[in-house]
């Protein structure tokens, strides 16, 4: 199947989970769906690791794992319910397939660095892939980890910024300006590329470029929050809200 086709299924899985739970974060899950699909279906080799640092996009990770066959599709409706493996935010002890637990923002990059250091110590060629949210980089620890990755030349860390420019209370610009992101990352010693985060060729090319670098890579992926569902697109109101029956039906129709 083409990545484009898989990502459609991933989006449907995302909506199914959030609709079933009547809880979750559709906006930011839909915005990173194409990146996640590419990482899991095209990029990752055996032993590579993935960190969903913006853990609230858990539905996107589970959606991809379901398409990969790592979790059963029937399990998706247990999302966020009592005794489910599909916790609100990913938990590695609850679900095989989650490489790193996340949820408290700003911590994933540090963990990725640690795994990358372990790969280097063991002389393994593996990479660690990370997705960060744009609101998330308001957390100071992200910048501590940016320094660490550059300091130790962790060229096996390849991170994405899911740059949809919206967060809970409004746009990044309104809440806490993060721009200019490219210049910030560059000044921290990272190799930075800027792409369309919904264009599979661009995502793939950026990853291939990143693999050739001698330093850590940040791929600033311009994305659309709620991508794929017309009424959710670019609406910060859909950050953490579940669709009702009518909205769910409409959304699923759009994804056929």
């Amino acid at each position: 199947m083409e990545l484009k086709e898989i990502s459609k299924e991933v989006r449907k899985n995302i909506l199914l989970q959030i609709y079933s739970a009547q809880s979750g974060h559709p906006g930011g899950a839909l915005s990173c769906a194409d990146i996640l699909t590419t990482i899991y279906f095209k990029t990752m080799n055996d032993g590579d690791k993935f960190v969903l640092s913006k853990g609230h996009a858990s539905a996107a990770l589970y959606a991809v794992l379901a398409e990969k066959g790592i979790i059963a599709k029937e399990e998706l409706t247990s999302f966020r319910k009592l005794n489910s493996k599909l916790q609100g935010h990913p938990s590695l002890l609850k679900l095989n397939g989650v490489d790193v637990s996340s949820g408290s923002l700003g911590q994933g990059l540090s963990v990725a660095n640690g795994m990358a250091l372990a790969f280097k110590l063991d002389k393994k060629e593996n990479n660690v892939y990370v997705i960060l949210g744009d609101g998330e980089i308001q957390e100071g620890q992200v910048w501590e980890a940016m320094m660490t990755a550059a300091h130790y030349n962790l060229n096996n860390v390849i991170a994405f910024l899911d740059y949809n420019k919206l967060q809970i209370d409004g746009s990044n610009d309104e809440v806490m300006k993060v721009a200019p992101v490219k210049e910030k990352f560059e000044s921290f010693g990272w190799y930075v590329q800027e792409i369309d985060g919904h264009n599979f060729d661009e995502i793939n090319t950026a990853i291939e470029n990143a693999k050739k670098q001698e330093r850590p890579s940040m791929i600033v992926a311009n994305t659309i929050k709620g991508k794929g569902v017309s009424f959710m697109e670019n609406q910060c109101g859909w950050h953490g809200k579940a669709p009702n029956a009518e909205q769910y039906e409409q959304a699923m129709k759009e994804l056929i």
Partner: peptide
Amino acid sequence: IGIAEQDLMGTAAGLALGGK
């Protein structure tokens, strides 16, 4: 890790995940 205790703990977590 420098004067960055939050990153210190996170990096240690990653190393543990890598079998160290």
